[in-house]
Design a protein around this nucleic acid. Structure first.
Length: 743
DNA sequence: CTAAACCCTG
DNA sequence: CAGGGTTTAG
């Protein structure tokens, strides 16, 4: 885990550092892996800054005419030529160029117009590669340090490459002397008159080399091609193995999935869909891709559970179809020779991409489903690891997928050798799963968004076995629950408030908790529809399948994890399971509890409310309702105070010392009747004091005539709000009512 | 602008 | 008590 993080961090830092080295960024749309490769390439190519960039641009853009003009200018001003000559990075080129310049009498830039300008950039690229291959061949060959190529090969190739490049450079130089423009201007004569005219012998030798070296180049090309073919074979074999492995896991997931969600319902629906799909079996590739894309674009935007479930099922169907495809592909690959390896590799890549899309979607779904359920807000110790699990790839399967992704990346990573074999690389846009990025982002966001702990509780819903792990038990270790789920009974408050006291023992298994799945199913519809109403935060996520899903994960995890659980595709059964305990509505018992709490606190903060009503699922509605309750309590309280104060004034009371609040006074009875109707709660003495103070405040204010001010009560409020006392911890317990009233 | 408080009404 | 309108502090 730390390794994973630090490694990724390192690579990111490396990436950034490299990208930042002087090289203008090309296009920001390339995938991570590809960008990294390019960054490496560029940094190797341009180790000394941007001088080469200038040269490069000149090479690329100068056409014949311009170079002619330039040459004229340069002929007159040799100082500029001096500025151009130093070639810090490319030692060989600079050597050759210098030599040639001296040979040509300072007509160095003319090679740009020699008809080779179109290949100028290519020259540079090859040069860069050979340069870096001299320094650190690994880096140039592959950022992922492909182990299949021996060091010898690398050196040999680098050497051949170097020689080939040298030949090209010399060709260029030669071309300079034979360039049309030069010939047109009778440069032959100029050269004859040059300070160091090349001897005819030298010229002859160069001619020979000019013809010979490209042949060497071609030979090396052939060798490279065959080597690459072997390599590709090996890669393909490994990829197939991995693909099979992945398919196996996916099948297991699929089985579990059906077991869980489709065992009871929708068998007919499933059949119908399957037959429908079989109709399109020939256009399957497009079918799968399109549906994935469409879903990510459209359906992801309305994330109600029903759609999610549908989507998940569709994904599984896609997978079922796609398990057939790779076999066909591999067969085709064997039948056809190496000539088709090119397209073969691309097809394999496409297949893998689809597989990975599906696999990742399912994995993410599963992770979300399983680990978003336990309520995080009130149980930090469990919430943290689970959250990290969900987003950071602690899941072994997640790791596996990541590795496969890397492996997959290996296939399409632009390898410098590919320039020889003219291997057509898949567009970087094809790689839709920028997974490491997503994960990274996710985890970083996650770390900064951990909900604040809200106190501890003796027992908690999150300790309950999730129906998934408890009843099913994934066959694959990949999908096993990461932490043990103790079978603890939870003495939850039942909805009608009747005491469930017989189960209050914390170490006993509640019979209800064992029989929840049945009720959960029946509650599914109700709950999901109930929560869709205040799903105002239901986001719409753009992007591709995996990314969209991951993004939804990110967003949800950053926000309310409970809300996110509701968005989750499988919220139906699992959520309602917890709803049993974590209710989304305030019961009459809660009202009663709130009233009793009012004896201690008149101005509870929302945090306090959450703390003391930990058995309700807090959302905006619940919070405001509780606040409204206390607002109403206060309203009644102050009304009573004002009423009795005025009454006292009317009764001829002159001083506040005559105003006492006792347990037998009218005021107290009124208040007690309101907040403690059953009179089964012993009102704390402190409340009497506060009530007395309030009464006197009102009395004084009225006597002083302050009540003419429309906001004259606010001063009193300010005083009273400071008189809140601690609410006993017993109120934090969900069954405080039983425990309180039984005293 | 929003959440909360305040005020009123049903 | 809940709901709605208004005011106000951040």
């Amino acid at each position: 885990m730390p390794d994973h993080d630090s490694a990724a961090l390192l690579s990111r830092q490396t990436k950034r550092r490299r990208v930042d080295i002087g090289v203008k960024r090309t296009v920001g749309t390339t995938s991570v892996v590809f960008t990294k490769g390019r960054a490496t390439l560029f940094s190797a190519m341009n180790p000394h800054g941007s001088e080469q960039d200038v040269e490069c641009s000149v090479v690329q853009h100068a056409d014949g005419e311009k170079s002619n003009v330039l040459r004229k200018l340069l002929k007159r001003a040799n100082s500029y030529e001096d500025a151009m000559i130093p070639f810090p990075g490319a030692t060989i080129i600079s050597q050759l160029l210098k030599n040639n310049i001296t040979k040509n009498g300072g007509t160095e830039p003319s090679f740009q117009g020699s008809g080779l300008s179109s290949t100028g950039s290519e020259i540079h690229q090859e040069d860069a590669c050979s340069n870096s291959s001299r320094e650190s061949p690994q880096e140039c060959l592959s950022p992922f340090s492909r182990p299949t190529m021996s060091q010898f090969d690398i050196e040999r190739l680098g050497d051949e490459h170097l020689r080939a490049k040298r030949a090209r450079v010399e060709n260029i130089i030669r071309g300079m002397s034979h360039s049309p423009s030069v010939a047109l201007r009778g440069n032959e004569n100029d050269r004859e008159g040059a300070p160091q005219p090349p001897s005819p012998r030298e010229s002859y030798r160069e001619n020979k080399r000019k013809q010979k070296l490209p042949q060497q180049q071609q030979q090396s090309f052939q060798q490279l091609v065959s080597a690459r073919k072997e390599q590709k074979h090996e890669e393909r074999r490994q990829l197939k193995l991995q693909l099979e492995d992945m398919q196996k896991q996916l099948r297991q997931l699929q089985e579990k999935f059906y077991q869980i969600y489709d065992s009871t319902d929708s068998e007919n629906e499933e059949d119908g869909n399957l037959s429908e799909d079989s109709m399109h079996s020939d256009g399957m590739d497009h079918q799968a891709q399109d549906s994935v894309a469409d879903r990510s674009d459209n359906e992801m935007s309305d994330l109600d559970p029903g759609h999610f479930i549908d989507r998940a099922r569709a994904l599984i169907r896609q997978h079922a179809m796609m398990t057939e495809k790779p076999k066909r592909d591999s067969q085709r690959g064997k039948d056809q020779g190496p000539a088709s390896m090119h397209t073969e590799g691309k097809q394999l890549a496409e297949t893998l991409k689809q597989e990975l899309n599906t696999a990742m979607s399912q994995v993410v779904d599963t992770v979300v489903k399983v680990f978003s359920k336990p309520v995080p807000q009130v149980f930090p110790p469990l919430q943290m690891p689970q959250a990290r699990f969900a987003v950071n790839g602690e899941n072994p399967n997640f790791h596996a997928a990541n590795q496969r992704l890397q492996c997959f990346g290996d296939v399409i990573i632009p390898n410098p050798l590919d320039t020889f074999t003219n291997m057509q690389m898949p567009s970087s846009n094809d790689q839709t799963e920028a997974l490491p990025l997503v994960v990274r982002k996710n985890s970083s966001d996650q770390s900064s968004s951990t909900p604040t702990p809200v106190g501890h509780h003796h027992h908690h819903p999150s300790l309950h076995p999730s129906p998934l792990s408890a009843t099913v038990g994934f066959g694959s270790p990949s999908f096993r629950h990461p932490f043990p789920l103790p079978l603890m009974g939870y003495p939850f408050q039942n909805p009608l408030g009747t005491p469930s006291g017989s189960y209050s023992g914390k170490d006993r298994v509640s019979p209800e908790s064992l029989d929840l799945s049945r009720e959960a199913t029946s509650l599914r519809t109700k709950m999901s529809s109930n929560h869709m109403n205040h799903r105002s935060c239901s986001p719409s996520y753009p992007g591709s399948t995996t990314e969209g899903l991951s993004l939804s994960l990110i967003k949800s995890e950053c926000g309310d994890l409970q809300d996110m659980a509701e968005i989750s595709p499988y919220s139906g059964s699992t959520i309602s399971f917890f709803k049993k305990k974590k209710k989304n509505r305030l019961s009459p018992n809660h009202l009663k509890k709130a009233k009793l709490m009012f004896f201690y606190t008149r101005y509870p903060s929302s945090n306090m409310l959450k703390m003391f009503f930990s058995d309700v699922k807090f959302n905006r509605c619940i919070t405001s309702q509780l606040i409204k309750w206390f607002s109403n309590f206060r309203e009644f309280y102050y009304i009573q105070m004002e009423k009795f104060a005025r009454q006292a004034i009317n009764d001829g009371v002159t001083g506040t010392e005559e105003l006492n609040v006792t347990r037998d006074c009218e005021l107290y009875r009124a208040l007690n009747m309101h907040y403690n109707k059953a009179n089964d709660f012993e009102v704390p003495e402190r409340f009497l004091e506060v009530a007395q103070i309030t009464l006197r405040e009102f009395f004084n204010a009225i006597v002083a005539g302050k009540d003419v001010d429309p906001s004259w009560k606010k001063a009193i409020y300010k005083v009273i709000c400071k008189l809140d006392s601690e609410v006993p911890d017993i109120f934090k317990s969900p069954n405080c009512l039983q425990e309180l009233l039984h005293e």
